[in-house]
Design a protein around this nucleic acid. Structure first.
Length: 234
DNA sequence: CGCCAGGGCCTCA
DNA sequence: TGAGGCCATGGC
């Protein structure tokens, strides 16, 4: 069995099932994990979360999502209509609030022209191309939307994944290279891609941090411990 | 107090 | 293509 799959098995055993993407169960409630089927509002909330979490701690995103829920704004039409400055005030806790308010307006406009029901039917490649044209949507955000909001099998690469893979000793560095590495060594299953990415985030937060805790790391036996990479990422 | 978090865009070599 | 600046809050 390949290293990619071995790492996955160990991470799953160590951290347990993650059940991303966390979604607020009702207005103002704290996001919960492990929901399986998504309503259209929940799908939109995931898309909003994917924008808000750009280079931002999820705890700060949660607060912003709660504000939006309290104001009944998890709605494509309402985000489209709301005044940008007012929106920025509501998502303040997520940081970069002016940029993100602008991005939420842009993507909700896109969703008016490209309804979620129609996006669901598109193939991944054309969908990804379309999403990447949206200002404020880069590769990670696009892939998060495809995987976590629309439940289609694509692998999400983030800063944690890059750091972990560098230290582990994988040669791939570019986004699409890393994405291919994972997708070619795993079953083409959205559930596996979903879970694996979430587990890598857990690993990056708890062990493979800027200052790594290799002694306690659950996948240390599978790691090359690339010191050069560790120093470079420090 | 400084560091960092589930990026992306823009500019300049 | 790659490095660097910029956007900003809240937790530790």
């Amino acid at each position: 069995m390949g290293r990619i799959k071995l790492i996955y098995d160990k991470l799953l055993k160590h951290f347990g099932f993650q059940g991303w993407w966390p979604v607020t169960p009702s207005c103002g409630a704290e996001p919960v994990y492990g929901i399986k089927t998504r309503t259209e509002d929940q799908i939109f909330e995931i898309i909003i979360g994917a924008i808000l979490t750009q280079n931002t701690a999820w705890t700060n995103v949660e607060k912003a999502l709660i504000q939006l829920n309290k104001n009944k704004l998890i709605s494509i039409e309402k985000i489209n209509k709301i005044n940008k400055e007012e929106l920025a005030g509501l998502i303040r806790s997520a940081g970069y609030f002016n940029q993100k308010a602008e991005r939420l307006k842009i993507i909700s406009e896109f969703l008016l022209e490209n309804p979620i029901n129609r996006l669901k039917k598109e193939n991944i490649k054309s969908l990804r191309t379309k999403l990447l044209k949206i200002n404020g949507v880069g590769p990670e955000t696009a892939d998060s939307i495809i995987l976590y909001a629309l439940n289609k099998p694509i692998f999400v690469i983030d800063a944690y994944t890059k750091r972990v893979c560098g230290r582990m000793g994988f040669r791939e560095k570019m986004y699409e290279e890393l994405q291919t590495l994972f997708m070619e060594n795993l079953p083409k299953d959205a559930k596996v891609f979903n879970e694996y990415h979430a587990l890598l985030v857990e690993l990056g937060k708890n062990y493979c941090k800027k200052k790594p805790i290799c002694k306690e790391c659950p996948v240390t036996s599978l790691c090359k411990k690339d010191l050069n990479s560790i120093k470079k990422m420090d």
